[in-house]
Design a protein around this nucleic acid. Structure first.
Lengths: 135, 135
DNA sequence: CTTAAATCCTAGTAATCCTATAGGGTAATA
DNA sequence: TATTACCCTATAGGATTACTAGGATTTAAG
C-alpha cells in the first residue's frame, strides 16, 4: 500500500504541473485545493525539494515550482523518493536490495522468482508514466 | 512491501506442495527447513487453513496438507488472504475498496488512474501464477 | 526599515501495524 | 492412556505512519 505521504506528494506535483504560468505555488494553495493537511504537506514538499524535483522560493510571493519539465519526471523516481523501494521484497529490489535472513539460496527461492515478475511489470508501468501523464 | 507473514505463508505452501506423497506435513518440519519461527508459522498456517487452502490433521502423524491441487491455488487468492489488498491504494482495490477522504472525484484523480494501471499489471502476473508455478 | 508572508527545520506524539513469543487447551492417534 | 500436534488467546517491543507545534530564516513590499 502506498503511504499517504506518497499519494499527497504525487497530487501536489500534479497540481504544480497544472499551472499555466511557472510562478511558485504556495503550500496553502495546494493544501486547500487537494484537501491535505498544511503541515503534513509542508514536510512532503520539503522531501521533494531535497530530492531535486522542486525548487522553492522563500518570502512573500514565494512557493514551490518544478525544476524539470513534467515529461522528464518519471513516476519511478518520485515514488522511490517518497515511498522507498518499489519491489515487494527487499531481495528483489534494484535500489534497496537486502538479502533475506531465511533464504539460503536466492535463486532457488520460489517466492523470489514470483516477485521479480511483479517488480518488472510494475516498473514497466511506472517508468512509462511521467508527471505529464498525471496532468 | 510484502509482510513476512505472506512471504512465510507462500514458502510454507510451496514446501507442502513439493511433497511427493500427500501425507500431512508438520509445522516443525516446515519451520526447520524454511528457517521460520515455529510459533509464528503456526499462526500463519492457521490463517491458511481458515481460508480454505489447507486442511489439518491432529494427533500423532498429523500436520497440514493441501485441500486443492497446487495448480488450482492462485497467487492472488493466497496473497489476499495473508496480506490483504493487492492494490496500492484503497480506492483502486477490487476486493477491499474504500473511498479516499481527500478525493472529491475519483475519476478525475490523476493518481487513481496511475494506480489502476499498476494494479491491473500486478493482477495479471499473480493470476497467471499458481502454487504449482512456485514448486 | 519594518512588517507581513512564506519557506525551513527540529521535535514530538498518538495510533496503528508488524513480528513475533508464551502458555495453556483440545483433539486424535498409536 | 500417553504422546503428539493442532487450536486459541493474549501480549509485548519495535517500527512506521500521519500528523502537529513552534520557532528560525528569508524575501518582497510598503
Amino acid at each position: 500500500m502506498l503511504s499517504k505521504r506518497t499519494k499527497y506528494g504525487l497530487k501536489a506535483l500534479a497540481y504544480i504541473a497544472r499551472q499555466e504560468d511557472k510562478s511558485p505555488v504556495q503550500i496553502g494553495t495546494i493544501a486547500a485545493n487537494e484537501n491535505i493537511s498544511h503541515k503534513f504537506l509542508e514536510s512532503i514538499l520539503l522531501i521533494l525539494r531535497k530530492s531535486g524535483f522542486l525548487g522553492a522560493k522563500k518570502g512573500k510571493g514565494g512557493g514551490y515550482y518544478l525544476l524539470k519539465e513534467a515529461s522528464d519526471i518519471k513516476m519511478t523516481d518520485v515514488i522511490r523518493a517518497l515511498e522507498g523501494p518499489i519491489a515487494m521484497l527487499p531481495c528483489v529490489s534494484l535500489n534497496y536490495y537486502e538479502k533475506c535472513d531465511d533464504c539460503p539460496d536466492e535463486d532457488a527461492c520460489s517466492v523470489h522468482k514470483l516477485m521479480i515478475q511483479v517488480r518488472d511489470n510494475t516498473l514497466q508501468v511506472l517508468r512509462n508514466n511521467t508527471l505529464s501523464d498525471l496532468v
